[in-house]
Amino acid sequence: MKIIVLIKQVPDTTDVKIAPETNTLIRDGVESIINPFDMYAIEEALRVRETLGEGEVIVVSMGPPQAEEALREAISMGCDSAILLSDRKFAGSDTWATSYTLSQAIKKVGDHRVIFCGKQASDGDTAQVGPGISMHLDIPQVTYVKKIEKIDGKSATVERMTEEGYDIVETPLPAIFTVVKEINEPRLPSLKGKMKAKKAEIPVWTAEELTCDENKIGLDGSPTRVVKIFTPPPREGGQLLKGEPAETAGELAGILKGLIIG
């Protein structure tokens, strides 16, 4: 029985800045990290393996060759093995093509019982890949999972975060879950894990190995196209209110009242 975690390598957004002269992202020295939400996905997969007392945790990422680093980090946390999906033909994939390609990989792995994704990736913030996979694989999904109340080999009862609180949902397995931060506290890599990660062989699967329909991957498989990239207009220069608390609070109250009532 396989527990699959899907992770994406993303630039550490704290460091992404725009150079004002050229209007481009400054990428120098930007580190790549595992998408923060995917850390919770990894942790939850490990916990499910512990709860069930069986199963193999396999982490999968689609990306450039350097995404291998992210996979090794996941192994150091305790995942059993990793697979990298990398091929020039995947270039230009939008969420449709990404979820198709990942689904092909999951099918090839086989015997998947639970699939974990992060809630969303921090570079694109789309939250579309997980639900897309549930459709391609025709399995139930629960998004925004904040707790797994009960899980056995056949079904799971989970809490899905909503704007007002949460829903309790019971689903048969196999199923795909996208997880939020509240679900757990990711563990740190162990020394043993780090050794294992160093030595691990990470196979690279290409479009051909995934028997992908070439019209469904990369540019051809992506219905959407980016036509323009620009910097959002900067916020207007702010105004500092000066004086004693009584004065500043009074002035602010006046401004806010105008805004709220008017």
Partner: peptide, 15 residues
């Protein structure tokens, strides 16, 4: 917005 609002992107689905 993308990259946490650092950049904006305009996207189409032409076909």
């Amino acid at each position: 917005p993308a990259f946490g609002g650092n950049i904006m992107a305009t996207i189409i689905s032409p076909d």
